[in-house]
Design a protein around this nucleic acid. Structure first.
Ligand SMILES: [Mn+2]
Ligand SMILES: [Mn+2]
Ligand SMILES: [Mn+2]
Ligand SMILES: [Mn+2]
Lengths: 221, 221
DNA sequence: CGCGCTATTTTGAGTAGTCAAAATAATTTA
DNA sequence: TAAATTATTTTGACTACTCAAAATAGCGCG
């Protein structure tokens, strides 16, 4: 069985390659795991020896099928645990990420299946992140963000791509949760600002950087 | 924060000194943790340096107040998690011990408090083991066992003191669960057997060793 | 083409936890 | 009380993971 260190490495490689090209650089991997780059290199060489990753020296690293299986299983645990903590234990959605970071390594498949059933087989976690299926299928979908979508169109928030407690608290306070509806009334790239308007509230400004972390879909029907 | 290895050492010292004299020998501690005795000695010396235990060389080890606090917190997590797994997720009571062995190190106090509330602040876990309070009070009570109680008296099972899946499965199949009522009809110390009679079933034999692991209280009222 | 910047890799060292086997202490037996 | 048995401790070695700092490779620019 892979240690929780190994699980964290594999999960972060998966996360960092989501959507992007397949090779993850040592620099970004080390930063994501909060270790120095040399540590990541050493570890990746060990993981390559064990068949979890393919390492292109000085280029980057990618998951093998076996590494991807482990990574998806850990990610599934992480996101189902987050959902449990928010939906059942009513915890603050900004704090559950840190909890799940530990629990994802301690939960058995048996417990996970029962949690999944208890929750009604959810497709996404509280942040809108897709939950990999038991079989290891990750429903990857490309969405526009508040930084890239069309202006003045009714939108629904589907996902917040940023796990830090600060950002999530900010989103919560401004009613920017998955499910809420809004539209972007204007955008000023020079100033780096977007103006948004949510249902019950008045217009507010948002940095383009923050806007890019909030994914939306056009409100149809 | 103590590592999960340290937590396991402290928890097992607490369990092994439950009821008995205070000093736990290196031999029994090593056996409980499935390490060789030399490893336990080395580790205990480190724990003594960190103030978690008092080590009487060649005599044994006992918890300091600080070590006891940690041990009680881990034990509380263990038993509340077991209760959650059985009562909410409807897991087999024989398998939850192994699950809790991991989860006890990954659960935060915040999550634990909410779990406690969800479960209705239970006093004991599914095996009848007392759950330490948030303040660290462990309700230790001396009970008779099926090996020591009076004969022909109506009894209620209050606790099963043995965590192995085999024994718990056996107890389950013979309806020997906390709460069930029965009486001991006879005992033959020479043959090492006890005969018991539960409500709906016919009399059955039980080894004295097994009987000693089933704690009971006289059925009053 | 060669110089310099940056990311990566290598090297050397340290911590936590473990085991096998030898040394030692304590206790039991004769 | 001396020898034998048993439990504990010590020693030396190993794995997993980490960092600091030095070495190296791969650019991009002049
Ligand atoms: Mn993690
Ligand atoms: Mn999430
Ligand atoms: Mn444990
Ligand atoms: Mn229990």
């Amino acid at each position: 069985m892979p240690s929780s260190t190994v699980e964290n490495y594999l999960k972060h490689i998966l996360l960092l390659s989501e959507g992007a090209q397949d090779l993850v650089s040592m620099g970004e991997l080390a930063a994501a795991l909060a270790v120095v780059p040399g540590t990541a290199t050493t570890m990746i060489k060990a993981l390559a020896r064990e068949g979890y990753v393919a390492h292109q020296p000085r280029q980057g690293v990618s998951l093998t099928p076996s590494g991807r299986t482990v990574a998806l299983s850990v990610l599934r645990k992480h996101r189902l645990v987050e959902t449990f903590l928010v939906n059942v234990l009513k915890m603050d959605w900004a704090s559950v990420h840190a909890e799940a970071e530990q629990l994802e390594h301690a939960i058995s498949d048996e417990v996970l299946d029962r949690l999944d059933a208890l929750l009604g087989y959810p497709a996404t976690d509280p942040h809108g992140d897709p939950i990999p299926s038991r079989k290891g299928k990750l429903n990857f979908q490309v969405y526009a963000s508040l930084a890239t979508c069309a202006l003045k169109q009714p939108l629904r928030i589907v996902r917040i791509t940023e796990q830090t407690a600060e950002f999530l608290q900010f989103a919560d306070q401004n009613n920017l949760l998955p499910g809420s509806t809004l539209s972007v009334t204007g955008r000023n790239l020079t100033a780096g600002l977007a103006t948004i308007k949510t249902a019950g509230t008045r217009a507010q400004a948002l940095s383009i950087t923050a806007a890019g972390k909030i994914l939306v879909e056009p409100l149809r029907r």
